[in-house]
Simulated scan of single mutants.
Amino acid sequence: MFRALSTGALGMSAQQKSVDNIANNLANVNTTGYKRTSIAFQDMFYEKVASSKHGAAASRPANDGPSLEIGHGSQPVATLRNFMQGPVEETGAALDVAINGTGFFQVEMPDGSIAYTRDGNFSRDSSGLMVNNSGLPLADMIEIPMEAVGIEISQEGVVTAQMAGDAGQIDLGQIEMAKFINPGGLTAMGDNLFSETEASGMPFYGNPGEEGFGVLRQGYLEQSNVDIVNEMVKLIEAQRAYETNSKVVQTAEDMMQVTNGIKR
């Protein structure tokens, strides 16, 4: 009975984390470049107990056919991130860039390290550098002159500008992209950023449009890939699983009450 209480409680705790994850997905349904996550569960260790055939105090031999095993519930073990392409929405802004396909933008952190993002909502800071919403510059260090009156970003990531009083275009730089063998192994840092881990592997670099890399779309932003209907269905499933585990706890408590009342 006590095992049922703890197993049911662990099940409730696991489903609570699932609900927390779904809530985070729904909260980020309008976050640019957000990738939905799910919780992976794993059953806990199993205890081999004696069957009535061997007596209450006997331990069952390991090689004596099927053994009686009692599980100890489940536990959440990992967060899985789905990097499926999100819908692309037109904004018309010159420095909004969406990746259509595989790859990440690279931004430079204050400590000099590189972080990776699918959020292409860029702007120009006071020094002229292309930066993200947190003020972090692209690792390519593309600087836009004050005199620029028009910016063009090609599908291959070439950034050019038209200067005031000049009909020609000047080359401002090349946006380089990164990709990973296992993008699901990246660690979420917040602010729409990811960092490299051993699980993700080392990044591979290339220009947009090259083999294995997506192309850029100026004037567009990739939206979240969260499907509200799917998340609501999963929320109902998690709620029902939570209720079922709470019934296990209640049933175990009722059985203990019955046992305690036998001698009356």
Rank of each mutant, 00 (worst) to 15 (best):
G214T: 09
H54I: 08
V215P: 01
F194T: 00
P76N: 07
A14K: 04
T197W: 01
G135K: 02
N260H: 13
M12G: 01
A14E: 03
A241M: 15
N24V: 07
G150T: 11
F204K: 12
E222D: 13
I114R: 10
N132V: 06
R3C: 05
N133V: 10
P208M: 11
T31R: 04
S113T: 15
T102I: 15
P145K: 06
D111R: 07
G190K: 06
K48W: 06
D171F: 13
F180A: 00
E152K: 09
V88S: 06
A178D: 02
Q75T: 15
V159D: 09
Q239N: 11
I144E: 06
L235Q: 04
D166H: 10
Q169H: 09
G184L: 01
G165I: 09
I39P: 01
T251C: 01
R3I: 14
M141W: 07
V107C: 11
G261E: 15
G73A: 08
L193V: 03
P66N: 13
S18R: 14
V248K: 00
Q106E: 11
N100E: 13
Q162L: 10
L95P: 08
N25S: 07
G71R: 08
Q250S: 15
Q16S: 14
G185M: 04
A115Q: 05
Y242A: 07
I262Q: 09
F2Y: 14
I144D: 13
S38D: 14
V19P: 01
M202C: 02
D227E: 14
N82D: 15
